[in-house]
């Protein structure tokens, strides 16, 4: 997913200033890292260069802050093309947890790995409680609920892995310790 496509999407309802785009992004995607303004302006400049957005006349003389951007026909077509593509499932699943388990076994044995996994499980579940509270709070916005659902399912997948890993620590210790 590229930030460019997300900004194009946020311009569909009408032209917006860079700072408005940042505000909408942060509100629409509360679980994402907040955008840096510099990142927004750099991306808008690239989109303008490619003809996907058009810079509007500044309302008054001033900094780039005052400049609004509008989606062009090319921009709309690009957005359509992007929506028709599915996201490729990531070929590399980074798993820092697995690395830690292996290192724990090597450095201090199976009990250290189990101890780590128990603590990691508690930390994951604590985070899941936070997301659950967010999404069940009365009046939670659906964008927040969807973001929480996604985070919960991923944390839950990690927890399944942690439980399986706990059951495999003994065998792993046998295999990798000399």
């Amino acid at each position: 997913m590229s930030l460019g496509h997300v900004l194009l999407g946020l311009l569909v309802p009408g032209e917006r200033h860079g700072y408005e785009l940042k505000r909408h992004y942060d509100a629409r995607f509360p679980a994402a890292r907040p955008l840096a303004s510099a990142q927004v302006y750099a991306t808008l400049a690239r989109l303008a260069r490619d003809g996907f957005v058009q810079q509007q006349e500044p309302e008054r003389v001033g900094g780039p802050d005052r400049t609004a951007y509008a989606l062009t026909a090319e921009g709309r077509a690009e957005l359509q093309r992007w929506l028709e593509e599915v996201e490729p499932p990531s070929p590399f699943v980074a798993n820092p947890l697995a690395v830690k388990v292996t290192v724990a076994v090597l450095i201090a044995g199976g009990d250290a790995a189990r101890d780590y996994l128990h603590r990691q499980r508690a930390a994951h579940l604590e985070r899941m409680r936070v997301y659950t509270r967010t999404k069940t709070a009365p009046g939670a916005a659906l964008t927040e609920v969807l973001a929480a659902d996604y985070a919960l399912e991923h944390l839950n997948a990690d927890l399944h892995w942690i439980d399986t890993a706990l059951a495999r620590v003994a065998a792993l210790t046998e295999e990798i310790t000399p």
């Binding site: 724990a104 201090a108 250290a112 101890d115 780590y116 128990h118 603590r119």
Partner: peptide, 15 residues
Amino acid sequence: PPLAGTPGPGAPAAL
């Protein structure tokens, strides 16, 4: 379990 992020007393010094 001890608080998240703080290794328990049982954790080896190396960790």
